[in-house]
Simulated scan of single mutants.
Amino acid sequence: MPTPGISSGSARRPRTTARKSLPGLLAVLVAALVGVTVAPGAASAADRDGGCDSGEFCYYYNSDQEGSVSDFTDSQDDYGATQPSCYEFKGEGNGQGVCVKNNAASVWNRTSRTVRVYFNSNFAGTSQDFAPGAKGNLNATLKNNNASHELLGTGGPTGCSTDGTNSTPPSTILVYRVGLGRVDRVDFKTYVKNVLPNEWVTSWPDASLKAGAVAVRSYAWYWALHSTRKTSGGQCYDVRDDTADQVYRPSTAQTSTSSAVDSTWSTRMTRNGNILQAHYCSTTTACGAWVAGDWMSQYGSRDLANAGSTYQTILRHYYDDVALS
């Protein structure tokens, strides 16, 4: 499948994934197909418009909610440090166009959840909490030293549990960080945004990226509901971060793929009322486990999108008897 991610920031090459680890096939694909390089630290999503709307967490360039605004609808583990790949201040006023990382002075939390601002990327280091509806200045430690923020759960899942159902996506997902030997509980939308650019070519047509966003989300959603797997150390997890499931690399979200995730987030793909375990592969012949009606071709999604198909049409072309709601 198009893409990945042998390591963060590496060339993207088509490969096979979705719970099938096929190293021999991968070697052939890597040797045969041209990679597309993408930069880490993605920039803004489509609904970021520089205005602080209801449901958003907003940074301001100056203290006391003055200057240019940078608005977010979900958690972000790394803003990126340089243009053109960073999350920037988008609103009019002082600081417009400047990268958000280490440049914010105040905030307005218009979400319904407490938001925690961190000194370091990946939700680490010294932090400061802002309650729902709160306006405030970043403290002396975090002013112009903000590197990530997290929307905290409200009594959300702990341990091995999930709050997801076939009707409601999980708020978080347990990701086995294979190379690090640990399991991280990751905000679900943040997870999907940091998988899609490692599984699809970010320059492909919008409809292909949207189809990929739905498939990546559906696959992860399914395993959040059904996984009983554990590491050798006894930690439970939903998905691995490598090609045995889907390649997850923190801080690799990209503008085009994040937009595709945001715009399809309300789309639920089910079969007989249950979230579909959506498999996908680079082509229809690349995966020995291919089952027509249960798998999507990534290159095929690109070709259908180039021919004018919508993402809904692409999904229904590959996945039999699904409902998109």
Rank of each mutant, 00 (worst) to 15 (best):
residue 86 C to P: 02
residue 198 N to R: 09
residue 123 F to N: 08
residue 134 A to F: 03
residue 16 T to K: 04
residue 196 L to F: 13
residue 71 D to F: 01
residue 313 T to D: 15
residue 86 C to M: 00
residue 236 C to G: 08
residue 46 A to F: 11
residue 305 A to Q: 03
residue 112 S to N: 13
residue 27 A to C: 03
residue 309 S to W: 11
residue 276 L to M: 09
residue 81 A to H: 01
residue 133 G to W: 10
residue 303 D to K: 07
residue 208 S to H: 03
residue 217 R to T: 09
residue 117 V to W: 11
residue 321 D to Y: 07
residue 121 S to L: 14
residue 251 S to C: 10
residue 119 F to S: 14
residue 182 R to D: 08
residue 211 A to K: 09
residue 29 L to C: 03
residue 74 D to N: 13
residue 18 A to C: 12
residue 190 T to K: 05
residue 185 R to M: 06
residue 145 N to E: 04
residue 293 G to A: 04
residue 165 T to V: 05
residue 125 G to L: 05
residue 67 G to T: 06
residue 88 E to F: 01
residue 65 Q to V: 11
residue 122 N to Q: 06
residue 171 S to W: 01
residue 286 A to F: 12
residue 62 N to M: 08
residue 236 C to I: 00
residue 250 P to E: 13
residue 39 A to P: 05
residue 76 Q to C: 13
residue 56 E to Q: 10
residue 248 Y to S: 06
residue 306 N to Q: 11
residue 262 D to W: 05
residue 197 P to H: 12
residue 187 D to S: 09
residue 127 S to L: 07
residue 81 A to N: 04
residue 325 S to I: 00
residue 69 V to E: 02
residue 80 G to A: 08
residue 174 L to W: 01
residue 90 K to R: 15
residue 61 Y to C: 02
residue 262 D to E: 15
residue 29 L to V: 04
residue 157 P to E: 05
residue 50 G to H: 03
residue 51 G to C: 00
residue 319 Y to F: 14
residue 312 Q to R: 05
residue 22 L to E: 11
residue 278 A to W: 07
residue 256 S to A: 15
residue 1 M to K: 08
residue 24 G to Y: 12
residue 65 Q to D: 07
residue 219 Y to D: 09
residue 74 D to W: 11
residue 236 C to F: 10
residue 285 T to F: 15
residue 1 M to Q: 11
residue 316 R to T: 06
residue 109 N to M: 07
residue 182 R to E: 08
residue 153 G to I: 01
residue 225 L to R: 07
residue 20 K to F: 12
residue 147 A to Q: 15
residue 121 S to H: 12
residue 234 G to N: 00
residue 99 C to E: 06
residue 241 D to T: 12
residue 99 C to F: 06
residue 295 W to F: 15
residue 164 G to C: 09
residue 114 T to M: 09
residue 215 A to M: 03
residue 294 D to W: 06
residue 117 V to Y: 14
residue 80 G to S: 08
residue 59 Y to H: 12
residue 91 G to Q: 04
residue 14 P to W: 04
residue 193 K to F: 00
residue 226 H to P: 00
residue 39 A to L: 14
residue 319 Y to R: 04
residue 155 G to H: 11
residue 183 V to P: 13
residue 167 S to H: 00
residue 126 T to I: 13
residue 49 D to V: 02
residue 81 A to F: 05
residue 58 C to P: 04
residue 260 A to T: 01
residue 70 S to E: 02
residue 224 A to H: 02
residue 112 S to D: 15
residue 174 L to G: 11
residue 195 V to E: 04
residue 110 R to Q: 10
residue 109 N to K: 11
residue 64 D to M: 01
residue 308 G to L: 12
residue 45 A to E: 14
residue 319 Y to G: 03
residue 311 Y to A: 01
residue 285 T to E: 15
residue 72 F to R: 03
residue 66 E to F: 05
residue 239 V to Y: 09
residue 265 W to H: 04
residue 63 S to M: 12
